[in-house]
């Protein structure tokens, strides 16, 4: 079993590297499409000789493949160059912003999963009840309203009208090593509420509808019929046998969507002026700050790839059938 699992992980890791290389090419190409990088660094009245100096120091005279290799090599070590706007290493800027985005994405995912599963199970088991119909309607709204609109509506209601929750920022944060967290202060928590709901709403409705559909599907299966024929209690059947079988797709969705949550945080972070990577990226786009844009792209790709890998491995933990399939590839 161990060797089979290892081969499986190595195979997936190779695929992951392929994906990252592709994204690396795109990121690298951005530098070349966005005009002469030297212009971004020097001012208009810099003499030509000095420009040439900068060009040489950046290695821009080397052949393109060499430049690409150098870019990747540095990126792999966390060196994404220097931001045009801030004149600081991109890696420092990102590291500063990563905790904000990660904490937001985590809260949004937990919110989406907990409520999505609860609502999904309920509407799967009592699909004709009024509450189930309310959930269906809410989910339709959640899917069709654009994220920024939901954010603005929440701000209008809870910040402007009621004055209960802050409309922007992370509140007070506490520094632990290089990580800053909002989890240790009350203002940190209150600041997380609305952005998490805004960001997680779409996934919540997605999870709810998947759990509901999956629940209905599972309840029709032979093993549920057989479980009933054995006289097991309704509770054991619904929350043991049925729910466990619906969790496999939920894990996939939650896992695979975590990457999207981070990517979509751009909008939520902009609406709530949340000091995360997304906001940094938006500012970078506005100022054509290519090093930040490229680094953000590669970082998001890395997160996606790592999550995919983790989900695949998690699958095999939940579903014993996959363990054998992986062990003995057909």
């Amino acid at each position: 079993m161990k060797t089979g699992m290892l081969a499986f992980i190595i195979r997936r890791a190779l695929q992951a590297i392929g994906v990252l290389l592709t994204v690396g090419i795109i990121a690298f190409a951005m530098f070349r499409f966005a005009g002469d990088p030297v212009n971004q660094i020097v001012s208009l009245d810099t003499p030509a000789a000095e420009r040439e100096q900068v060009r040489l120091s950046l290695g821009l005279d080397d052949p393109v493949p060499v430049q690409f290799a150098r870019y990747l090599f540095r990126a792999a070590q966390g060196d994404f160059g220097v931001s045009y706007q801030f004149r600081q290493p991109v890696s420092d800027l990102l590291a500063e912003r990563v905790p904000a985005t990660m904490e937001l994405a985590l809260c949004a995912t937990i919110f989406a999963t907990v409520f999505g599963v609860l609502m999904g199970v309920y509407s799967g088991l009592k699909r004709d009840s009024i509450l189930a119909k309310v959930f269906q309607t809410v989910s339709l709204v959640g899917i069709s309203l654009p994220t920024f609109l939901i954010g603005i509506l929440l701000i209008y209601l809870f910040s402007v009208t009621l004055g209960w929750l802050p409309s922007y920022g992370r509140g007070d944060t506490v520094r632990i090593g290089w990580w800053t967290t909002g989890f240790l202060t009350l203002s940190g928590w209150t600041a997380l509420i609305m952005p998490s709901i805004t960001l997680g709403l779409f996934q919540m409705t997605l999870i709810m509808r998947i759990v509901r559909a999956e629940m209905l599907e599972v309840l029709r299966t032979d093993y549920i019929k057989f479980a009933r024929a054995r006289g097991l209690t309704t509770r054991a059947i619904h929350f043991g046998h049925a729910l466990k079988n619906t969790l496999v797709p939920v894990i996939t969705i939650v896992g695979l969507q975590f990457g999207s949550v981070i990517a979509f945080a751009i909008i939520t972070e902009t609406v709530f002026q949340w000091p995360g990577m997304g906001l940094l990226f938006v500012q970078a786009v506005q100022n054509v700050d290519i090093p930040i844009m490229a680094a953000y792209l590669m970082l998001v790709a890395l997160i996606f790839v790592v999550i995919n890998l983790a989900v695949d491995i998690l699958y095999t933990v939940v579903d014993p059938r996959l363990r054998t399939t992986i062990r003995q590839p057909a």
């Binding site: 299966t221 032979d222 093993y223 057989f226 024929a229 309704t234 046998h241 939940v318």
Partner: peptide
């Protein structure tokens, strides 16, 4: 009736491949 099922009446269905919960 649930207490009768499985206790006083046992059932066996056609397809053993689908009668058992695959995750347990």
């Amino acid at each position: 009736l649930r207490r009768v099922r499985g206790k006083r009446i046992g059932m066996i269905f056609q397809d053993p491949l689908t009668s058992l919960n695959p995750l347990y």
